[in-house]
């Protein structure tokens, strides 16, 4: 785990570029998938919060999976869902306390953020750098 994904709601303008980047990156056979990240109104003026999987340390989704389809990727630190193994029981969708495992009704698959396997497309497309993917040392130095 060399990099980390940082969300800065104060910089988000709610433009939804991340949604498009996510949808197209995870497309199956050219059909756009359901987005794994979505900016939601934070409840204050001009404040949007890009909501996506927090990749919890003690993840409820991993605990809830009865067929071990959800596993943590030791390289990126992301919780990844293996669609081949998933039986669509909806346990993770119901168990996630942040609602970040979602059922893609079009593809009939449960989807969640996997940090694009170590290079999140949303961070590349965010015009205001509200979403960044940077080395841990860099962000630690900045915040002091």
């Amino acid at each position: 785990m060399n990099n980390r994904f940082i969300v800065k709601p104060e910089l988000c303008t709610g433009c939804r570029s991340c949604e498009l980047a996510c949808s197209f990156t995870h497309a199956i056979d050219g059909v756009r998938a359901l987005t794994r990240i979505t900016p939601i109104d934070g409840g204050f003026k001009d404040l949007w919060v890009p909501v996506t999987c927090l990749q919890c340390d003690d993840a409820a989704c991993i605990k809830s999976c009865l067929v071990n389809a959800l596993k943590r990727n030791p390289v990126t630190g992301a919780v990844e869902l293996n669609h081949e193994v998933c039986v669509n029981c909806m346990a993770c969708v119901a168990a996630c306390p942040f609602g970040c495992a979602v059922l893609d009704t079009q593809a009939n698959l449960i989807v969640k953020c996997d940090l694009c396997g170590g290079d999140p497309a949303c961070a590349h497309f965010c015009p205001t750098k509200a979403l960044v993917w940077e080395p841990i040392e860099k962000s630690v130095k900045k915040t002091g």
Binding site: I40, D41, A60, C96, F98
Partner: peptide, 25 residues
Amino acid sequence: INIDYFRKCDECHRKELAGTMGRIS
């Protein structure tokens, strides 16, 4: 798993998270 996690649906959970993160921001 905490039984309270199952009380809300995924969409309402996301809104709750956005509200919390919004307040902090």
